[in-house]
Design a protein around this nucleic acid. Sequence first.
RNA 1: GGCGCGGUAGCCAAGUGGUAAGGCCGAGCUCUGCAAAAGCUCUAUGCGCCGGUUCAAUUCCGGCCCGCGCCUCCA
Length: 475
Amino acid sequence: MALRLHDSLTRTSRELRRPDPADPQDVFTFYNCGPTVYAAAHIGNFRTFVINDVLRRLLELEFGAAKVKHVRNLTDVDDRTIGQAKKEQRPLAEITQKWTAKFHADCDALNCLRPHVEPTATGHIKEQVNMIEVLMAKGNAYRGADGSVYFKLQSFPDYGALSRIKDRELKITDASADSDHKDSVSDFALWKAYKPEEDGDVKWPGPKGAGEGRPGWHIECSAMIKKHLGDTIDLHTGGVDLLFPHHENEIAQSNCCNGVTFARHWYHSEHLLVDGTSMSKSKGNFYTLSDLVEKGYSAAAVRYALLAGHPRKQLNFTLDSLHAAESALKSLNDLYENLRHVTFADYADSPSDRFQPVFSALREDLNTPTALGALFSIRADIERTMKGQPGKQITKGDLIALEKVLFAFGFVLEKTPVPKLAATQNITTLAEQRWAAKQAKDFAPADKLRADLTAAGWSMLDRKDGYSLEPLKNN
RNA sequence: GGCGCGGUAGCCAAGUGGUAAGGCCGAGCUCUGCAAAAGCUCUAUGCGCCGGUUCAAUUCCGGCCCGCGCCUCCA
């Protein structure tokens, strides 16, 4: 069955190219625009990365893990990273290393597979400079009056194919009108001339014919793609906000430099909204993964919540959706545990098509909500059958298929329990007293102690042979 | 102004030209000293509003209202 994905360029759902299984050199090349490492990424950023992670997993299931090459960059030099370094009075590299480490930790917590290559802009200055020199030599770029190098938009008539934007429709902003160094306000920077007061010690030797400075933002992706994946790639992805101008500019640069189609397929995931509106610090609805973990939610629940809506549709994130995600994951966990403890009559590991609807949904443009819906319907069927109601026989193949489903979604159930917050000595003592009272069947004092624990914000769960404590959530 | 997306139950969210997936919450029941957990059952005559096409529209077409995103360096 084919893996189909919406293509932003043609605005249709198209089958992804299938690499030749017989040719070990023929791999599916996949580039996902990564984060700018100047601060902690927020959950909106992670929506894109989690969606791309599911896509990566589907590609592996479809073509084989060895047939997929996934590259995601780190933007470690631009206005924001330099600005942050200046603000903190620290070297640029120190800032970007710190936030790269945080990004990696968050990705791990969210169980995202690492890309095969994670190139940095500062690690590819040479490649960027080379590309700019080619563009200058071909007449697609020129040195501006300020020493910067600009891409000459006029030299690329196909500009705007992705975003359907026409030059005259551009809103003229202060920033774009501000530049008399450029031939046209629409031209964008490939190389930015060094400005001591802004850039500090951040500078490199420039392309021939230009002074020292630093690369513009868009050129890094073009250069790193060329180096790590080649002149034409199979799939290029990112958030919708990158569609214009970033990806449009990448197309212009790469096409003009290489003379061939840049990306065969474009995919953009939509934005995450919080409480029905865009996230911003001033609105107080700006969340990082750490913010949510501190509130007592698991990273797994965040991952689930980010996949609960269609990737190409704005998703409204709320703390309630995390409650729902925790519960949903728990029931999936129960299903998995139950299935693992079945004694199967069928040991043949015969393939199961029970979860086919889940994969069908994922393969048709990454429809995660429909896939989750199907998964829960199947779960109900299995649970009913296990309870002795008539139904399709449960086989070991079902367990194997479920594990494949969990891999596709990236849900690692047994490793992602609800985080345990340490109870204070005082709480533990109350719990011990209550347990003792209960064992003695002194129910009145036991109930009193339960009320005390509840008042203190803890929930005590009785089990056959003991108890557990969990903090009550307040939100 | 330009480009694009969306309005489906208390909340989140799929979907289809033929009568509304799923999750959360809630309710009832089973179980249980209490509480929880777990299981079972129930919960939109309705899919922003008004027209049109059709045997049939939430689904197609037109208009309107409302919300959101982007429009030169935001995933």
